[in-house]
Computed example of a mutant assay.
Amino acid sequence: MTTPTIDTHVRLDAHPHHSSAVTAVLTGSQAHIAHVGLEADNWCVVAKNTLVLARIDHEEPYWAQ
Rank of each mutant, 00 (worst) to 15 (best):
H9M: 07
E59Q: 15
D57R: 11
S29W: 02
L26V: 10
I33F: 05
L26R: 08
Y62H: 14
T27I: 02
W43T: 15
N49E: 01
I6C: 03
S29H: 08
H32K: 09
H17G: 11
D57H: 10
I56F: 10
T3L: 08
V45C: 06
H35I: 09
L51P: 13
D41C: 13
T23R: 10
V46S: 10
W43D: 15
H32G: 12
L53A: 11
V10C: 07
M1R: 05
H35Q: 12
A14F: 00
L12K: 00
T2A: 06
A54H: 07
T3Q: 07
H15T: 04
R55P: 00
T50V: 14
A47S: 15
V45W: 03
W63A: 14
A47H: 09
D13Q: 11
V46K: 06
A40Y: 12
A40W: 08
L38V: 10
Y62E: 10
A31V: 04
V45R: 09
T5V: 07
E59Y: 11
S29A: 10
G37S: 11
I33V: 13
V45H: 12
I6S: 00
W43V: 15
A24N: 01
V10F: 04
D41V: 13
T3I: 08
A64E: 01
L38Y: 10
P16L: 01
L26M: 07
V36E: 12
N49A: 05
L26P: 05
T8K: 00
S19L: 09
Q65F: 06
Y62L: 10
T5I: 08
S29D: 03
A64M: 13
A34I: 07
T50G: 09
T5W: 02
S29I: 03
V22P: 00
H58F: 04
D13P: 00
V46T: 14
L26N: 04
I33D: 10
R55F: 08
D7Y: 00
V52R: 04
L26S: 04
V25F: 05
P61H: 13
P4I: 03
D57P: 14
D13L: 10
H32L: 12
A21Y: 14
E39V: 05
V22E: 01
A64S: 13
V36G: 07
D7V: 01
A40F: 09
T27P: 00
G28H: 09
D57N: 15
V52H: 07
A24T: 05
H18V: 11
L38C: 12
H15P: 00
A64P: 06
E39W: 02
H17A: 15
H17Y: 13
E60F: 03
V10G: 08
T27N: 05
V10M: 03
S20R: 09
T5D: 01
V36Y: 08
A34K: 03
A64R: 14
P16I: 02
A54I: 04
T8S: 12
T23H: 05
A24R: 00
H9E: 01
P61K: 06
T5E: 05
L12E: 03
R55L: 03
A21C: 14
V22I: 11
M1L: 05
H17W: 11
V52F: 02
I6M: 01
D7W: 02
V45E: 04
L53I: 05
T5Q: 04
A54F: 01
